[in-house]
Design a binder for these strands. Structure first.
Lengths: 243, 243
DNA sequence: CCGGTCGATCTGGTCAGACCACTTGACCAC
DNA sequence: GTGGTCAAGTGGTCTGACCAGATCGACCGG
């Protein structure tokens, strides 16, 4: 295993994670009250400011409802949380949640072609050059992780060209969830990234400024791996079959 | 003007907003360093913990890079921020940003039909009843804002039925951005919400478990208002035309 | 008996000041 | 150059105090 940057966990980080686990893994259901800041500080053996920092960060992501004078209550993350919670939900209690993984694959397949179509409308020739260069770099390496990185860069350019802040922000969150686990996911996604030809067809369609062709080409890039991974997930968790 | 809940702004809230403005409105470009916590506290006339809380919340949303011992630097929100930043970008310096508004409309048109298709696959008869009830309620009121609320509830049920955490979380963020401005947006979206018939067609397709029909029906629900609003935006800001 | 008032006592909000831990960069010895 | 050292500045954490809103029971007047 290659060298890795050391990760330092601050006290508030630690508190944040612990409280988040309680909330996400159901230790404290939605609507229930959290212990008071003072009590939490005492129980966890840290200072109150540290607890406050953690709780405020959770409130920032709409996971808690903090009211001056009243108790701090847990909100229903299913109804209020944003995409940033995704990585935490994907891996719950150390195990990958197949339902979440499925939803990611499905969303990719819906959004990807849409973004590609917009990029085709707005990209222009400069974009085609950029995409082609990225694909060249992708084709030249044999390292699975590096190929993932290049594929990510490819989509990054597509999203840029789509000139859509909403898709940009969605992509940011998904990338933030994907990148830390990139090494583990590379083997799974290899099938997709190996199809450089499909990417080139997509690039051509985008470069030609043809949204509908680009949409279809993006689908053809994304669908194979999506299909086989969905099948693998279904085998993993038969309950997903009939849902 | 109807009564409104009083809004209490805490000190860290205030600091958060001010620093956020600096970051988003370009006062401090990406990569630049923020003044030190002590300095900020001094300049703003508040305590250091208050500043810390605000900065940590910003770091939580990937807008800042805080390093122990080093300076706190601003990150490029275009590349790292999540969907939660959307409301803040939509209204910059008190004015609505047409490019952001456009991206929201476009994204809706891409994602909505996709979600509808998934809901059709997985909904079942119970969902059709739920959707029908929601539409009945929508049809019975003349209040524009209430109609928006019901339309939102309609999509909420659709997203639920799609059984997709990713779409759920996306929807949460978009709803969080939409709801506070609901009153202002109601007139703009009236055209869409008035087409109860189109919603009923969509409901039928979902109830019938027919994904492709549902996809098309959702498109027909969303497209008219999308098209006319996009035209209005283009008139507002001609630069959008040729992008 | 009901409804309002008051206040004790919870809760979170804010502050000051101290000290620890880390990063940086200048400087120095090799 | 290379690597060590050190001081200064930054964020990290704690303590303890006090302010301010929320809550609820005890009380009191109708």
């Amino acid at each position: 295993m290659p060298l890795q940057p050391v990760t330092r966990r601050s006290v508030p980080d630690e508190v944040f994670d612990q409280v988040l686990s309680e909330v996400v893994d159901g230790g404290i259901g939605a609507g229930e009250a959290l212990p008071s800041e003072r009590r939490l500080a005492e129980v966890l053996g840290v200072s109150r400011p540290a607890v406050r920092e953690a709780l405020q960060r959770m409130a920032q992501t709409r996971l808690l409802d903090v009211r001056h004078g009243g108790a701090t209550t847990v909100r229903d993350f299913r109804r209020y949380a944003g995409l940033d919670l995704l990585p935490r939900l994907l891996v719950r209690r150390g195990e990958l949640d197949p339902a979440i993984a499925r939803s990611i694959l499905e969303a990719r397949l819906v959004v990807g072609p849409g973004v590609a179509a917009l990029a085709a409308e707005r990209g222009g020739p400069a974009l085609e050059v950029l995409l082609t260069e990225t694909l060249d770099a992708l084709g030249e390496t044999d390292d699975g992780v590096q190929r993932q990185v290049h594929a990510l860069a490819f989509w990054d350019h597509v999203v840029d060209a789509a000139d859509s802040m909403v898709f940009r922000l969605m992509f940011n969150s998904l990338r933030a969830a994907y990148e830390p686990a990139l090494e583990a996911l590379a083997p799974l996604m290899a099938e997709e990234v190996d199809q450089v030809g499909a990417y080139r067809v997509l690039t051509a369609a985008i470069g030609a400024g043809d949204p509908e062709t680009a949409r279809a080409a993006a689908d053809r890039v994304l669908r194979p791996a999506t299909t086989s991974l969905l099948a693998a997930l279904a085998a993993l968790d038969p309950a997903l079959e009939d849902r």
